[in-house]
Write a protein that binds this DNA or RNA. Structure first.
Length: 269
DNA sequence: CATTGTCCCTGGAAGC
DNA sequence: TGCTTCCAGGGACAAT
């Protein structure tokens, strides 16, 4: 499930392969993914367009086109962008043919992924909070965004308007590292806890990027390789296993219908 | 505005 | 063995 580190990895690895290329043709294998555009409308926006640069914002990926518009891609749960896959793939939704004979294939087993053509990043930007690894994300800013919120801190971390790019796995990992129980009301955290969580979010995401993302489900990099970040997971998807710090079995509970993993000893209520 | 619940979607696992 | 049911979860959206 691509979260910030996975999308960042995909962006970095696709960048040298795509920038400077042109779209020669586009095959739409699943018309739902380009909705509300028609197949013809989607193709008309892309064919002949050059790819000038790539940008990631939260879990969104943008390919900026020579027309000034951009192709927005959100992979959601099961999407992947594969560059020149050697084997025929199942669940192919879109094929982008480039002017050098290469192709970029969007596969998405569960069909939750979203693709659209936008005039700018603005509509997405307006829905997102700060980038957790950029300088404008500070403890003061983070603290201000948690202020007064009564919802569980785990739920608030998943709110993309608070911080962009954190998903279920990295929220659990950051809370464990900061030793904070996922059900604590976000607005009740002490300044020390906010500082710990702030640092934990950043170090968890940075380390995951260094490890090229976590291949827990269907995530694969554009060349088909897995990431290795999941080998460092302490709690995420580790229900029943002993906590690496104290040996207590990792517990799982549902918060807003999201499976949440934590150590009941290290993360006190 | 903050918060909560529902829906989308499908392959694999679990249950009968 | 074969069928049905449940589950994973990001984010848009509606309701309160």
């Amino acid at each position: 499930m691509p979260e910030l580190p996975e999308v960042e990895t995909i962006k970095r690895e696709l960048e040298p392969l795509l920038v400077g290329r042109k779209f020669a043709a586009v095959s739409v294998c699943d018309t739902k993914i380009v909705s509300p555009l028609t197949v013809e409308g989607f193709q008309a926006e892309l064919v002949g367009q050059g790819i000038e640069y790539l940008r990631r914002r939260g879990k969104y990926l943008f390919l900026h086109l020579s027309s000034g518009k951009c192709l927005m891609v959100h992979l959601r749960m099961s999407g992947a962008l594969l560059f020149d896959p050697p084997q025929p793939q199942s669940h192919v939704r879109l094929i982008f043919f480039l002017d050098n004979g290469s192709k970029l294939v969007l596969v998405d087993r569960r069909r939750l992924g979203v693709v659209s053509i936008l005039d700018s990043e603005k509509p997405v930007e307006n829905r997102l909070g700060p980038e957790p690894l950029e300088p404008d994300f500070t403890t003061t800013e983070f603290s201000r965004r948690l202020q007064g919120r009564k919802a569980p801190v785990k739920a608030v971390l998943l709110d993309q308007k608070v911080v962009a790019g954190i998903g279920n796995m990295y929220a659990d990992e950051a809370l464990f590292k900061a030793r904070i129980h996922p059900l604590r009301p976000a607005g009740d955290l002490s300044p020390q806890e906010i500082q710990r969580l702030f640092s934990a979010i950043r170090s968890t995401l940075r380390s995951a990027i260094e490890n090229k993302g976590a291949s827990v489900d269907t995530y694969q990099r554009p060349g088909g390789e897995p990431g290795t970040a999941h080998f460092n997971f302490k709690v995420a998807h580790c229900g029943g296993e002993p906590c690496p710090k104290c040996g207590t079995p990792i517990q799982r509970l549902l918060i807003r219908n999201r499976g949440s993993y934590f150590c009941p000893t290290c993360q006190k209520d």
